[in-house]
């Protein structure tokens, strides 16, 4: 196996250039190095001006998502050796405005995320003295898969619908809404329904399924969306036949 590999890294410095260009760097390629190690090598040893996000380097923080050879990947979990002999093209996440080099503006996702209220909503909080909100392991299993989302936004980079219609609320926001809708302690489903049942909510999704394919935490956002479509469709039919509520 080659002991070095070439990285073609997208560079965009708005004060210098109007469009992104590519710089090529040769980095070591031991079998335990991931793409993020390669970028850190570039930053530390070759070009300190390279800008990118990362934090935990262990697939938990969700900040090092980038396009690797055109696929959205967590660069901390993508091994250089798997792309030998290279070169490997590293670009910022697709479908987001680029701030600089490999850094994208995640403001759109953050604004959308809060609209689905991704936290436990209670109509009335119990007093502390009443104790915990208890939950059985079976009740936890209902939502646990969706709670694995780390907000890495790979699903947004993979989603062609989000690419075509930036108003679409997107896979992770819907999966996280479902994470709380399916939580036995939560009472916020009706509030979330108002947001999710709009065209920009679940109905924008045409079930391409790329979100689930690229998800590094196996959350299955496409499944969450289809499940919620059935819930929303049943609610709509019920509202049509019983406009004043059941």
């Amino acid at each position: 196996m080659a002991d070095r590999i070439k990285l073609q890294v997208a560079r965009y410095r708005p004060e210098r250039e109007a469009e992104a260009t590519f710089d090529e760097y040769e980095v070591p390629c031991p079998k335990d190095w991931v793409v993020l190690d390669g970028l850190n090598h570039v930053k530390d040893r070759i070009d300190g001006t390279l800008a990118y996000r990362w934090s935990c380097r262990m697939g938990v923080c969700g900040s090092c998502g980038m396009m690797v050879n055109g696929e959205p990947k967590l660069t901390c979990a993508t091994f250089l050796a798997d792309y030998a002999p290279g070169p490997i093209r590293v670009e910022p996440l697709r479908n987001f405005p680029v701030v600089r080099d490999l850094i994208v503006d995640i403001g759109d996702f953050m604004r959308k995320l809060v609209t689905v209220r991704p936290w436990i909503v209670r109509e009335e909080e119990k007093p502390l003295s009443a104790g915990e909100y208890l939950q059985t392991p079976e009740q936890m299993d209902d939502y646990k898969q969706y709670s694995m989302c780390i907000n890495c936004m790979l699903c947004y980079a993979a989603c062609p619908v989000y690419g075509l219609d930036p108003l679409f609320i997107g896979p992770a926001a819907i999966a996280l809404a479902q994470r709380y809708n399916l939580d036995s302690r939560d009472e916020g489903a009706a509030e979330r329904h108002r947001v999710l049942s709009e065209h920009e909510g679940i109905w924008g999704c045409t079930f391409v399924g790329e979100c689930t394919r690229v998800c590094p935490k196996h959350v299955d956002p496409a499944g969450a969306i289809q499940r919620y479509k059935l819930t929303a469709a049943v609610e709509t039919v019920k509202a049509f036949f019983m406009p004043r509520g059941a």
């Binding site: 709009e198 065209h199 109905w203 479509k229 929303a232 709509t236 039919v237 509202a239 406009p243």
Partner: peptide, 11 residues
């Protein structure tokens, strides 16, 4: 009251 859309029926 949820607004009525045609999308749920088409879906």
């Amino acid at each position: 009251m949820v607004r009525q859309h045609s999308e749920p029926y088409l879906w």
